[in-house]
């Protein structure tokens, strides 16, 4: 059944667009455009969930879709913008790995994810397309965390990973049971708030949010 949903053209288009939005984050040097791309990514995810809800007719998934829209596409980007504005951070994101190598690495990660998922071959009835996109999001999120200097980008990386898992869950099992799904949303939201608090604290203590400073505790 899920083969029908995920094989459908519109679904493939949406998932491709999610990948595109991830590359928009990889390819941009300015914080605002990264946040905007993240917002678009979450919006697309909400659409994916919406289509799954429509074609399975499950009301639970409508709730999940709506929550994705509100929390991930509106509230969390707003938190980001609030942080950026309040701490008057320089708008460049600070790179350890330049833009073009980043994009190439991103591409390689997508290819690896695709072959990894196909080689495991455990999901016969599901489109491996969605799952490999989900793996790509997780690995690119991880890559963003280690290749960008600003603490705020590490926070964004975690949220991209989380989005990837959300896509994975919805393509494998139409998401988790509602109670669990609600709990995860709660944790993601509180997590974003607390990371925000930490970023403010880092900024106040170190007068910068470059993670270069955070390298004193060793041994």
């Amino acid at each position: 059944m899920s083969e029908i949903i995920f094989g459908s053209n519109i679904m493939q288009l949406l998932i491709s667009l999610i990948l595109v939005s991830t590359f928009m984050i990889l390819g941009s040097t300015r914080l605002y455009s990264c946040v905007r791309a993240f917002g678009i990514q979450s919006l697309l995810l909400a659409c994916v969930a919406g289509i799954v809800a429509y074609s399975t007719g499950k009301s639970d998934i409508y709730i999940v879709s709506a929550l994705t829209l509100v929390i991930k596409a509106l509230v969390i980007p707003y938190i980001f913008i609030y942080i950026i504005r309040e701490i008057k951070v320089k708008r460049e994101i600070g790179l350890y790995v330049g833009i073009s190598p980043s994009l190439i690495i991103g591409g390689i990660l997508v290819v690896i994810s695709y072959y990894l998922i196909r080689s495991i071959n455990l999901i016969t009835e599901l489109s491996s397309f969605a799952l490999s996109a989900s793996m790509s999001l997780v690995s690119i999120g991880l890559f963003i965390m280690i290749s960008r200097k600003k603490a705020i980008m590490q926070m964004l990386g975690i949220l991209i990973m989380e989005n990837g898992l959300f896509l994975g869950a919805i393509s494998l099992t139409y998401g988790m049971p509602l109670l669990v799904e609600l709990g995860i949303f709660f944790d993601v939201l509180i997590g974003a708030l607390i990371m925000g608090i930490l970023i403010f604290r880092i900024n106040r203590t170190f007068e910068s949010i470059d993670t270069d400073m955070l390298k004193t505790l060793i041994g």
């Binding site: 965390m145 603490a151 590490q154 975690i158 607390i194 990371m195 930490l198 604290r201 880092i202 203590t205 170190f206 993670t211 400073m213 955070l214 390298k215 004193t216 505790l217």
Partner: peptide
């Protein structure tokens, strides 16, 4: 602050 950030991430 450094420890908390590392821990969190």
């Amino acid at each position: 602050v450094e420890a908390a950030w590392k821990y969190m991430i």
